[in-house]
Design a protein around this nucleic acid. Structure first.
Lengths: 214, 214
DNA sequence: CAAATAGTGTCTTTTAGACACTATTCG
DNA sequence: CGAATAGTGTCTAAAAGACACTATTTG
């Protein structure tokens, strides 16, 4: 690649540049405690997992790498939320941080408990930098996604009952949702597999799957 | 400030860092052509106004500076849209670009026409980098804001008639909106000033103002 | 059969949309 | 007065919400 120089004969590297970090709120569901976030616990007190972005990497690459290194989990589909850009937000110098949301289904969560802990989003400890704001944005973004679509983050397996989907939605919304309206709005967005549950008390439930990849 | 060093005794500046740019889709309304975007026209072909972020600046500062320098307009309230982060997106090297949306009311637009032109968002020329995607995101974001609130970007002055508001919403939506439903949904979100229009044909219209700063 | 859960039918309330009709101004 | 625009009243259709009732399973 021919080296670039601007009108003053200078390269990009001759101008001051910020360090760029990523910080990620990984949200998951727990049956008892509802919507939770994963916090790294590496001596300095609880915080969101993050790292500096390396050359040749995308932001999503950096998120995935930081989650593996800092919490032992396999990242999925990081979504950008916001760039925190206060020039004085980090004592170490000029650091921009790109906040992300990621999600992991409870049954796929393999967490290294020596590195991380799981906390309900409404019972957070005090977090450094802008991390409490990141969690708030992550929760609001996830709620907006689930208002539009049955299970866009695949918290459930490929097929599931309406009851299971209802429980997921209530956990994410942090509120109860009304059986009738929920059923009607979801039926039009799901595919009936024709199968039924069996082996548990009560009338067998229809088993549905997502249409396309919603 | 004591100089920061990490566990390897290195400073932040010892690690590779990207250049960080901002690019902004400034949207405005024209009575005949509807929703439009401002394009810089500086010899290299039309493109969104942008600049590299300087030390000590926020991203919003950089947006404001670039708009003044490249188009002669005074920026208002830049909103972050997305970070474009493909490591190879710029020939000059590793450059992240933070896309922004800004808006300017037609009567406050003082454009330097030797530097910039105004184009309807549905009649764009071919744009470099990710700039067509930026415009698309900007338009979608603005439309979402106006679905939720009467005039969050203050395209209209402090007081206005329902007709004027209706025209703004149709221009932004790029579609006609239905007089009755529009009226009903807006009345509950506006404050009746008690004044009426006068001097124009037809029944005088009530003049409303925004409640709070919506 | 009793308890538990799934699913249906139906009624009411709310909201969206259409549209005719009235009201008030200018020229 | 006629053209133009603002505002109201009312009807219908669709959606949201409540709730009783039926259906089918396990233990």
């Amino acid at each position: 690649m021919p080296e670039y120089r601007d009108a003053q004969g200078r390269r990009l590297e001759d101008y001051p540049r910020p360090s760029v970090a990523v910080d990620t709120a990984v949200l998951t569901l727990e049956s008892e405690r509802g919507l939770c976030v994963i916090l790294a616990t590496s001596g300095l007190g609880p915080r969101l997992p993050g790292t500096f972005v390396h050359p040749g990497e995308t932001l999503a690459d950096a998120v995935t790498r930081s989650l593996l290194d800092k919490t032992g989990i396999q990242g999925l589909s990081p979504t950008q939320l916001h760039v925190f850009d206060n020039p004085n937000r980090d004592d170490r110098g000029w650091v921009l941080s790109v906040a992300h949301l990621d999600t992991v289904a409870p049954d796929r969560l393999r967490l290294d408990h020596s590195l991380a802990e799981i906390r309900p989003v409404d019972q957070l400890p005090s977090l450094p930098y802008d991390h409490e704001g990141v969690v708030a944005r992550a929760v609001e973004t996830l709620r907006a996604e689930y208002r539009r679509s049955p299970d866009p983050r695949h918290f459930l397996p490929d097929s599931f009952t309406l009851r299971e989907l209802h429980d997921v939605h209530e956990a994410i919304a942090g509120a109860s949702l009304g059986r009738d309206t929920f059923r009607r709005s979801m039926l039009s967005q799901l595919v009936d597999t024709g199968d039924r549950t069996s082996g548990i008390v009560g009338k067998p439930a229809r088993i549905f799957s997502r249409s396309e990849d919603r």
